[in-house]
């Protein structure tokens, strides 16, 4: 069952530079922080959103509303799973109507989580527009979804996994390319 770490694709320093760049890119595209809100996807997208939000505050000198979303209840693989995934608390303490939302997630893969999140967000209101920011895009999309802001493109094979570690819940910051046991069978 042992999984093999094939490579550390991003170090903590790399991640911190990427977060700074993403913050600048978001501000450039939005022409400042007006009308801008961030929504991070639980679990690690939420920490990522908090960090980007902190960086934007540093740059612009004012804080922007940041919320957290758990899209588990909107997923399409719900019925096929044997064990239910844990549901975390969604907390979007502001109105999203007519806002420019940046949805933040750690890894973009099939696009199904993003699809579920879009549905979930629509239940909270009618945003002016939604951007997508991800730390890593690993390819293999199954839905027509594309990120507006990408930290790093990392081509992968199906048997591999991208593991994002964040100091908030893991032992430090890193992005690792992992070979999953299922791929060896």
């Amino acid at each position: 069952m042992a999984e093999k770490i094939k490579a550390t694709v991003l170090t903590g320093d790399d991640m911190s530079r990427i977060i700074t760049r993403l913050a600048h890119e978001i501000l450039e595209k939005n022409r400042g922080s007006d009308n801008l809100v961030l929504v991070g996807l639980r679990t690690r997208g939420a920490y990522l959103a908090t960090r980007i939000s902190g960086k934007i505050e540093q740059i612009e000198g004012k804080s922007i509303p940041t919320g957290f979303l758990d899209a588990t209840l909107y997923r399409d693989d719900f019925r096929t799973r044997l064990k239910q995934p844990a549901v975390e608390v969604t907390n979007i303490p502001f109105a999203i109507d007519e806002k420019n939302i940046v949805l933040v997630d750690d890894v973009l893969y099939t696009g199904r989580t993003v699809r579920a999140s879009l549905d979930a967000l629509m239940d909270f209101g009618r945003p002016a527009r939604i951007y997508l920011a991800v730390l890593v895009d690993r390819g293999h999309r199954e839905l027509p979804i594309k990120a507006d802001f990408v930290g790093k493109n990392i081509p992968t094979s199906i048997g591999e996994e991208i593991r994002v570690k964040m100091a908030e819940i893991d032992d430090g910051d890193a992005v690792e390319l992992v070979e999953t046991p299922a791929a060896n069978e």
Binding site: Y74, F78, T90, G125
Partner: peptide, 17 residues
């Protein structure tokens, strides 16, 4: 249940699960 509690305060109090 703690995670579900928040759904009851949403404008649209319904999830498609």
């Amino acid at each position: 249940a703690r995670s579900f509690r928040e759904i009851l305060d949403r404008p649209i109090k319904r999830v498609p699960t």
